[in-house]
Structures are given as C-alpha cells and as structure tokens.
Design a protein around this nucleic acid. Sequence first.
DNA 1: GAATCAATTCAACACGTGATGATTCTGCAT
DNA 2: ATGCAGAATCATCACGTGTTGAATTGATTC
Lengths: 199, 199
Amino acid sequence: MTTRPRAGRRPGGSGTREAILDAARRRFAELGYDRTTLRGIAADAGVDVALVSHYFGPKQRLFAQAASLPFDPALVLPGLLDGPREDIGRRLARHVLETLDSPTGRRRMTGLIRAAASERQAADEIRERVSRELLVPLAEGLGAPDAPLRASLAGSQIVGLVMARHVVGLEPLTESASGVLVDAVAPVLQHYLTGTLAP
Amino acid sequence: MTTRPRAGRRPGGSGTREAILDAARRRFAELGYDRTTLRGIAADAGVDVALVSHYFGPKQRLFAQAASLPFDPALVLPGLLDGPREDIGRRLARHVLETLDSPTGRRRMTGLIRAAASERQAADEIRERVSRELLVPLAEGLGAPDAPLRASLAGSQIVGLVMARHVVGLEPLTESASGVLVDAVAPVLQHYLTGTLAP
DNA sequence: GAATCAATTCAACACGTGATGATTCTGCAT
DNA sequence: ATGCAGAATCATCACGTGTTGAATTGATTC
C-alpha cells in the first residue's frame, strides 16, 4: 500500500482512448486530413467532441498518432532482403498486395497517401518517416551506389498502384485479383531494384 | 442592325474571367480542393469574392472548369500510337517528363492528383475523364484484349511518379534529371503496354 | 461517509467558409 | 443625352469548424 501510484479512477480503464484512435484512423483514411472532423470522429467513437481534444490535443497531434505505417519495417525488411536477390521484386509485390487485401492494411495505406496529398505538413512528416524507416534501410540492404534512387522508384510504383486502385478506383485495377497484379508489377519492382536503369 | 445579338457592354471584355480561372488553377494545384478557398482565388485575381461565384457558380463547378488535362489527348495519342510499337514506352515516358518540366504542365498534373486524393467527387470526375479521354483510346490503339488493364497499369506508374516526385517530394526523384527518369521508367511503361504480364 | 481525481459531458466562443441578393459603376447603342 | 445591360462590389447570412473552460459523474481511497 505504500507504492500505490495515485488515488482515483484507473486511467484508461474504459478503452475510450483506443476507440477514438480507431475512429480517427478510419476517418483519416477514408476522407483525408481536411475532410475529417473531430466531431465525426467523436460520433464514431460514441463520445463527446471535447474528449478528443482532451486526450490528443490539437488535430495535428491526433493525426500524427493515428497515421502509422501499415506494417513494421523491422519485421518486413529482413524477409525481403534475405531471400534470393532475383526474387526481391516478386516478394515485395506480394507483400504490398497482401497488405492491400486486408481492410486495415488498405486503410492505413490509403490514409497515408490521402493525407500526404492534401496537407503539406502531413506530406513532410510522412516523407521523412517513410524515407527513414523504409527506403533508406532498403537502399542500404541493396548496397548499390544508386540504391536511394532505386528504392524511390519502386516506392513510386507502389504509391501509384494504391492511388489508382484504391483512391481513384480505376476499374481494370479494382477488379483485378491480387495475383494478376503481383505478376504484372513484380518484374517492374525487380527492374527498379536490381535491373539496369540506363539503357 | 437587325441581327446584332445584344446591346450592352462586351462580355468578357476585361479578361477578369480568365484571371479568375488562372488563379483557381494555381491554387487548386498547390493546395488541393478543400484548402483552396474562393476568397483566396479572388484575392489572387484581384477581384471581389462574389465575382467568382457570379461567373462560375458553386465551387464544384469552378473546379470542374479549372481542372483540365495538362495536354490535349487528341494531339498526343496519335503521336504515341503511330510510331514503332517497341518504342511506345519511351515516347510516353518522355512526354510525361517533358510535361512535368513545364511549370503549368506540372501544376495541372499535381492539381488533378491532389484533388483526386482529397475529394471523392473530384476523384470520380477525374477518373471518368482520364478513363474516357486517355486510357480507353490508348487501349483501343493497343488493340490487345487486356489493353484496359495495361493502360491502367501504365497510368498507375505515371501517377505514382508525379506523386512521389512533386507532391510528396522524395529527394532522389526531385533531384534526378528528367533524362535519367525517362531511362528508368521507359522500360516499365513498355512492359505494361506491350510485354507479357503473366510470368 | 467524505474527499479526491480522472473520465466525461455541456455550453459556448471566435473564426473562416461558401453562398446570395441588393447595389453601384461603366461603357456601348440608341 | 439617355437608357440599359453587363461587370463589379457591398453587406450579410447560415453553417460547420477546432478549441476551450466550467460543470457533472462515478469510481477509488482514506
């Protein structure tokens, strides 16, 4: 009874905080930064608006906490770089499209992209995070001198695919099975990561 | 004096309408749909806010008029499809990167992409227009049965490149000369348009 | 049972937005 | 000179936003 931290109600006992964060993730992903309102988030979470600000401070800070990468780079990158180098494009393509098949994975990716497109400040933060946690380690794993450019080109194809398939909703892509797209995109990623870039 | 259309001041005599449209294009491209305000547009054009609504009606209709393709498909497509088929990827890549080198071309492309990412309704309209005016004709020119998928895949790479290079601002891409990127992207577009998609 | 502290809600502010209708200004035709 | 249509502005509305501070509720500890 001596080291009891504090008196009063248990903090975070009701899980409301998590409910708000979940609702925020969903709305940011579906609507982007601007069109997401604190009131909408609060309604989804079933709480009052003021509680959102009370827990997370201003909207920007809430977004920073809600926008996280759809996977853990530390878990994914070794699996990519360890296997045979001639297969890295296909492994990457498969991983991306598997992520897109899961609702939460898809939601997080579209959320990042929508936010990056709509808010300059969000774009800056996302660029830094993706670059630091994903592209730079990938480039270092590749080892080539032009590896940063290679990793960025691969990233551009991935972003474009998500954008065209899930944000804009281009029909031939939305109706294609993941397997078909893996087959189509894999050689492209392989080209960017290990092929000859100059003709 | 009988067939004179109407009396009164010449319509559009002062060029203000065009000034408003130009300002709208610039702001939509830089800020996206939501963060672009009619007041900002009016300030740029040096007129009162009400004049914007007076000329173009509601914001959505203004956007529809401001968001135009950065080039005329009727002029570009023949040049793409007429040449040798083994070169179509390179010609397309060069055309895209040349467009991106011009400030107005770049502005229009980023504008379309920012708007598509931020507003569902804008995304719908842009998808329809790009599909109808660009992808379908391109697919018909290709003639293959899976041409719509091919054209969409090529489109996804182009969108991703613009997104990564000019919206997010990934450094290795922003600092690469157009020529380098043409060399890197051309074989990819060639693969999508004429290569074998299944392994 | 009383005190305490966090969780939660209530109520309201200050602000910027898109939109509208009335009003003034200006150049051309009569 | 006069009338008038269109260009341009003024003043204002109704609304939704993010944010803030006070008030309320409920569980926990003394």
